[in-house]
Amino acid sequence: MPSTMDYADRLRLADLRVTRPRIAVLQAVHAHPHADTEMVIDAVRAVLPTVSQQTVYGTLHTVTAHSLVRRIQPAGLVARYESRVGDNHHHVVCRSCSAIADVDCTTGNAPCLNLAHDNGFLVDEAEVIFWGLCPNCSASQPRT
């Protein structure tokens, strides 16, 4: 996991002011891949007990807008945040427990899919979510 100095450097490179809440949010997202907002708030408050919920929400918005973290929101689930950015990877989600795991590009380089027709769009990203059962949930399913 990157150090506090690495997080400060990342913030500076994104032309963002370095603050303790921003560093704590980046640390939380790196430490807890696919964390929802409440998980990030809890992790940040473990380091900065008096930080407000609104500060964490605002910081997540800012660091996402500057591509320091990535926000994903599979259908029917709350938004999740991850530190793996810039590689256009995909996700697999468990239908039973909502566990999320990363899946590398399925075909070629980003955006990892080939369109039959792009309708004039300059496509730079594809968001693919695979659904199924994670190993724990599939092991608990009765065999027929």
Rank of each mutant, 00 (worst) to 15 (best):
V92N: 09
A139Y: 11
P135V: 08
V51W: 07
T106I: 14
A126E: 06
V103T: 11
A116G: 02
D36W: 03
L16K: 07
R70V: 13
R12A: 12
S96K: 12
D6H: 02
H34N: 14
V78T: 15
D87E: 13
T50Q: 15
A28F: 04
L77M: 15
V25K: 01
R17C: 05
N109S: 13
C97D: 01
Q27G: 05
A99C: 02
L133K: 06
W131A: 02
L115Q: 01
H91G: 05
H32Y: 08
V44Q: 07
T106D: 07
R20V: 13
Q141T: 10
L60Q: 10
W131Q: 06
V47W: 11
Y57L: 14
G120S: 05
A99F: 07
V69Y: 07
W131R: 08
H66D: 09
Q73P: 08
V123L: 07
P142S: 12
H90T: 09
S3K: 06
T50Y: 11
C137N: 00
E82V: 09
H34V: 09
L133E: 09
S3M: 03
S3W: 00
T19F: 03
A110I: 03
R71C: 12
I100D: 00
N119P: 00
T64L: 06
N136P: 04
A139V: 00
V18P: 01
G86V: 04
T62C: 12
A31K: 07
D87I: 12
V69T: 15
R45E: 08
S52F: 04
R71D: 09
L122P: 10
R143V: 15
T37L: 15
G58D: 15
L113T: 09
V29C: 05
V47R: 15
A110M: 04
T4C: 01
D118W: 00
L48P: 11
D124V: 15
C94N: 02
L115Y: 06
G86R: 01
M1D: 08
P33V: 05
V103R: 10
A8Y: 04
H30A: 13
A14M: 07
V47D: 15
V93R: 04
D9Q: 12
A28P: 02
Q141I: 08
D118P: 02
V69A: 13
